[in-house]
Simulated assay, not measured.
Amino acid sequence: MTAASGFMEIALIVAFATLALGQILSIVRLVLGPTSGDRILALDTMVINALGLVVVMGIRHGVQIYFEVSLLIAMLGFVSTVALARFILRGDIIE
């Protein structure tokens, strides 16, 4: 094992732990959030953290399919956040 690969492993472990901590804190905000806006932001943050976790796993395992999965997660997360925000604001998603 070279020094560069050792540093890469440490960086991936730190990135994974940081994203996992962010995911846990987002779950806490989702449960304790006093307003619906806080809950929407917590869900959006959870999507971003899940996206980061999938990308870190893709880098760690060296498999290309993880990056395609991350694109799908990003698209679904954006659409679901917009739909939920419109539902909260207007009470209807489709006009």
Rank of each mutant, 00 (worst) to 15 (best):
F16H: 10
L51I: 08
F87H: 13
L21D: 01
G62I: 08
A15Y: 02
R29S: 05
R39F: 04
R90P: 02
A74R: 03
A20Y: 00
R39E: 08
G6F: 13
L32I: 10
G33Y: 04
R86V: 03
V14P: 01
M1E: 01
I94L: 15
V31Q: 10
A85Y: 11
A50T: 14
H61F: 15
G52M: 03
V56P: 01
G91Y: 06
L53E: 04
L53N: 01
G22M: 06
I24R: 07
V47D: 03
L19R: 01
I59E: 00
A4D: 07
I10Q: 13
V54L: 09
I27K: 03
Q64Y: 09
S36R: 10
V14F: 09
I59W: 03
V79I: 15
L32A: 15
L43C: 13
I73E: 00
E68K: 12
L12W: 04
R90Y: 12
A74G: 12
V47G: 05
D92F: 06
V14K: 07
V69M: 13
S70G: 07
I65P: 01
V54E: 02
A15I: 02
L53V: 00
I65C: 09
A15K: 04
L43V: 10
R90E: 11
P34F: 05
L53K: 03
F78H: 11
M75Y: 07
A42M: 13
A42Q: 10
E95D: 12
M75S: 12
